[in-house]
């Protein structure tokens, strides 16, 4: 007779890990049957944020590389999808893939320059890149619609018709999220993942040791930077088709910092952390939006900012490994799952 602790430990490791994944997928697919329309809308947000956060977790947790510029790639995906589908009438699905490849290519160029810098400097430079990206979107008015936004982006089609938006978006977003989760878990255990574990201080490795062993750190870091950018771009494309209208404010510095907060709160040692972080922050956001105006009144944005800031500080001070570390304590022998 196994104890509960042992059962959980077993579930979280090895073969039975797949069961957790399957269970996760089944639960998510049945959510719309249980939750009302409001719940589904919230869950679409969680899914979109989870995808971006997962990319950032791979980057920060495994490649040890900070980025406060995921908004750039999210925005690149969204604007490429928005502009190309409205102007050329190409299939949104095709454009989504093209945008992801393009974002990855941009990331390889930028990443090559960034990986040689010290971590905290990279944080500053990526923030600056995000600021430049937003000003650029505002400036290129003819192409992007400027500050007022780019409207009338078509829905994602399914066969010949465009199905009911929210529910369809929910399934698309979450199927993509689960596929990317599987990809992430495989990446973590791939050659790249193992190479990065040898580099990453979080995993007890050291860059110098890895270099001595002949691991080409820079190449792997750039690869993961590109992977993170592709995730963000895919989420951006999905977002553009889901909302139908995009404006530069959605891809600003605050978006990037928010994603970083989700990664930190969820825990950067596992791609699973993305869902915890995104879920928690989106829930807090929704709760504040519902509760605060009724209780205190005033503008809701203020309480969100205060909450995000305090949650980030509290997490870093009291639970620096994030929420996933609570689970990890149940299974000390398995670090990366």
């Amino acid at each position: 007779m196994r104890t509960v602790k042992e059962k959980i430990r077993a579930l979280l490791s090895g073969r039975e890990h797949r069961m957790v994944l399957a269970l996760f997928a089944v639960v998510l697919m049945t959510v719309p049957l249980v939750a009302g329309p409001y719940g589904v809308i919230v869950m679409v947000d969680v899914g979109l944020y989870s995808i971006v956060t997962m990319g950032l977790i791979l980057l920060m947790g495994f490649a040890g590389q900070i980025s406060l510029g995921q908004g750039v790639f999210f925005g690149l995906g969204a604007y490429m999808s928005g502009i190309i589908t409205t102007r050329c009438g190409l299939s949104p699905w095709l454009v989504l893939l093209v945008a992801a490849v393009a974002a990855g290519a941009v990331a390889i160029v930028v990443g090559r320059a960034l990986v040689r810098l010290r971590g905290l400097i990279v944080a500053g430079v990526t923030l600056a890149l995000n600021l430049v990206f937003c000003s650029l979107v505002v400036s290129l008015r003819d192409l992007t619609g400027g500050a007022t936004g780019l409207p009338l982006i078509p829905r994602l089609p399914l066969g010949g018709f465009a199905p009911s938006n929210t529910l369809f978006s929910y399934y698309v977003v979450w199927i993509v999220a689960i596929l990317l989760l599987v990809f992430s878990l495989n990446l973590v255990n791939s050659r790249t993942g193992r190479a990065l574990k040898s580099v990453n201080l979080l995993a007890g490795g050291s860059e110098d040791t890895a270099q001595v062993l002949g691991v080409d750190i820079i190449r792997y870091k750039v690869q993961v930077f590109a992977v993170g950018a592709i995730y963000a771009s895919i989420a951006g494309s999905l977002y553009a088709h889901y909302t139908g209208c995009i404006e530069p404010g959605a891809f600003g510095v605050h978006f990037s910092v928010l994603v970083a907060i989700m990664a930190i709160i969820g825990g950067m040692t596992s791609p699973w952390g993305a869902f915890l972080g995104a879920g928690l922050i989106v829930s807090v956001n929704e709760a504040l939006r519902e509760v605060m105006p009724a209780v205190v009144g005033g503008s809701t944005g203020a309480y969100e900012l205060i909450a995000y800031g305090s949650i980030l500080v509290a997490t870093l001070l009291f639970l620096p490994q994030g929420l996933m570390s609570i689970w990890r304590r149940l299974q000390p022998q398995e670090r990366f799952r």
Partner: peptide, 28 residues
């Protein structure tokens, strides 16, 4: 100060969290 022994990136994020909260307080 409580996190003075953490990595540089952790400290960057702490100042960011503080910046967010300050902005929020100013807004309210």
């Amino acid at each position: 100060y409580p996190a003075r022994n953490s990595s540089g990136s952790t400290l960057v994020f702490l100042t960011l969290g503080f910046a967010f909260a300050t902005e929020g307080i100013a807004l309210s």
